Computed example of a mutant assay.
Amino acid sequence: MVTIRPIGGETPLEFVERADSLKVPEEVTNKVLTDHFGYAEDGEIKKLKLQSKPFWDQFYRDHVEGIFQRGGTRYAALKFVQRKNDYAEEHRRLSEVEVERIVDSAGDWPR
């Protein structure tokens, strides 16, 4: 069982981002949010987790890798990330360089 605890002065969002970066199981993160930070409802927890930049980075990577594995084009992957990124809240919006890095991280795209 993975153990993770909040670091002194860490906000709930900082904790979630650290947990996401460490790939802590969701159940463990939820338990800490409930026990330590007083989150009572699943909706509150989900809303908080959707603010996590590491969560969205992984979301984009997973989708880009799926496009790559299905033989899709780099252009399609790039457009997917750009389109989703356009609707992102400002604090988790990716720069063009970050978008390019995520798309290129999938591998060598066919030309």
Score class of each variant (00 low, 15 high):
residue 2 V to P: 13
residue 3 T to D: 12
residue 4 I to N: 05
residue 5 R to V: 12
residue 6 P to L: 12
residue 6 P to H: 11
residue 14 E to N: 08
residue 16 V to G: 03
residue 18 R to W: 12
residue 18 R to F: 11
residue 19 A to S: 10
residue 20 D to W: 09
residue 20 D to G: 01
residue 20 D to V: 01
residue 21 S to G: 15
residue 22 L to H: 07
residue 24 V to P: 01
residue 24 V to D: 03
residue 27 E to H: 10
residue 28 V to D: 10
residue 31 K to D: 11
residue 32 V to C: 04
residue 34 T to G: 03
residue 35 D to C: 00
residue 38 G to K: 07
residue 39 Y to H: 02
residue 40 A to C: 00
residue 41 E to Q: 10
residue 41 E to C: 00
residue 42 D to I: 05
residue 43 G to L: 10
residue 43 G to D: 14
residue 45 I to M: 07
residue 46 K to M: 03
residue 48 L to T: 05
residue 49 K to F: 01
residue 50 L to Y: 11
residue 51 Q to N: 13
residue 55 F to W: 12
residue 56 W to I: 01
residue 57 D to Y: 10
residue 61 R to P: 00
residue 62 D to A: 09
residue 62 D to C: 00
residue 66 G to N: 15
residue 66 G to V: 00
residue 67 I to E: 06
residue 69 Q to M: 08
residue 69 Q to W: 06
residue 72 G to T: 06
residue 73 T to Q: 09
residue 73 T to D: 06
residue 75 Y to K: 15
residue 76 A to V: 07
residue 78 L to P: 00
residue 80 F to W: 10
residue 80 F to L: 15
residue 83 R to E: 13
residue 85 N to K: 02
residue 86 D to V: 00
residue 91 H to M: 08
residue 95 S to M: 06
residue 95 S to G: 09
residue 99 V to D: 05
residue 102 I to L: 13
residue 109 W to C: 03
